[in-house]
Design a protein around this nucleic acid. Structure first.
Lengths: 204, 204
DNA sequence: CGAGATAGGTGCGGTACCGGACAAACAGCC
DNA sequence: GGCTGTTTGTCCGGTACCGCACCTATCTCG
């Protein structure tokens, strides 16, 4: 899976499920003017097209490989058959979809309500986790598509994080230097996902 | 279903599917600071908890009744049994989930990339459709929770739309006067949903 | 009809982010 | 080494939106 490969478009049929072994696939919401924003991302802990296992036929967003890597795939029809034969598989799939949906909600809120720098930091950390490396091979242009902002805003945010000594920049990639501090500089949305039944504030 | 009723919280089990006969249920992403934003909404053309029919156990967001109305419900376990017995039911359910996911993606992009006034207009139109009335019983406070902005921003946007002669405001509700013009003043995200395999712009 | 609650309007400073456009730095390639 | 395309840094004005705070309508209910 090379960087930039588009694995699925909204409305198009989900032919295969893809299990990344490495790298990362992002699901993007794409607007009519071409602007885009990541709604959820999938790494080696996930599956692209998981909903196909529950019967859904088509992609809801654009699936793009942003961090290159390798992956295994299985035909949607096969996974559905397997799911019927082995309840464990089906259950695992369901649990993953549940997880994915939760992530989508958190990201939806985060994208709409949090600042670029917070989101950028969080994204970098996730990328590092998935790459198992501090070296993130992404141009600012690509990052701007992921975060749904101008490229110049990425330059700005990255510049600030570099001044703080959290990352180092060079052409075509970003290197994370201080993960702990970067985590502190990112929003707590990642943490939100780990809590299942967290306390909530009532309606007005 | 009264205005403000919370039907589900993220992580909580989906006990019933709710088929609204009237009114509207919103699924919100709720942040740790209490701020929220609507990710998708459900009217008489939809079902709350549809994913439970595919096996998913818990809510991914907060489900709140924003436009009061009535609804019918069925236990999740019952719908799963029915789905197994009648493939038509299962298929319909799957198709709806597909639709819902598509909407979530569009809204995610819209929320992150479009202006308050555009989104506000679009929301009003949808509310009217679901209410089958031009009278939308929502306080600005509630609207601000739905759109994920300050209440003052709602005042501002509504004020502008009123000056343009598209709506009329009074305490506790908003009346849409000119639906056609309001549609022209809203973003084209609604239209996006009707197109299945629209042309797309390539990566970089 | 008057008190209290709820909803709406407004004002102000601040800032995060946008759109556009341009120049500098870098990498690959002949 | 020079050329070309890509990536990045930077600057500008402009604006949409925020946070806060306060005041005024409007409703409700005793």
């Amino acid at each position: 899976m090379q960087q930039g490969t588009i694995l699925g478009e909204p409305g198009k049929q989900i032919d295969h499920l893809v299990f990344p072994e490495s790298g990362m696939i992002s699901l993007l919401a794409v607007m009519s003017d071409g602007r885009s924003i990541e709604t959820v991302s999938i790494g080696r802990d996930g599956v692209l097209g998981s909903t196909a296992g529950l019967g859904v036929r088509s992609y809801s967003g654009r699936a793009v490989v942003y961090l290159p890597g390798t992956g295994l795939r299985i035909a949607s029809s096969d996974i559905r058959r397997l799911g019927k034969e082995h309840p464990v598989i089906q259950d695992t799939l369901i649990e993953y979809v549940e997880n994915l949906l939760r992530q989508m909600f958190v990201n939806a809120g985060c994208n709409a309500l949090h600042s670029i720098e917070l989101r950028f930091s969080r994204w970098l950390l996730r990328a590092c986790d998935r790459l198992e490396s501090n070296f993130v091979p992404m141009t600012q242009e690509l990052l701007s598509q992921v975060l749904g902002v101008r490229r110049a805003s990425i330059t700005e945010a990255a510049g600030h994080l570099e001044v703080l000594g959290l990352i180092r920049r060079s052409r075509g990639h970003i290197e994370v230097i201080d993960r702990i501090a970067l985590h502190a500089a990112s929003c707590e949305c990642t943490a939100l996902l780990k809590i299942a039944g967290e306390p909530v504030t009532p309606l007005s």
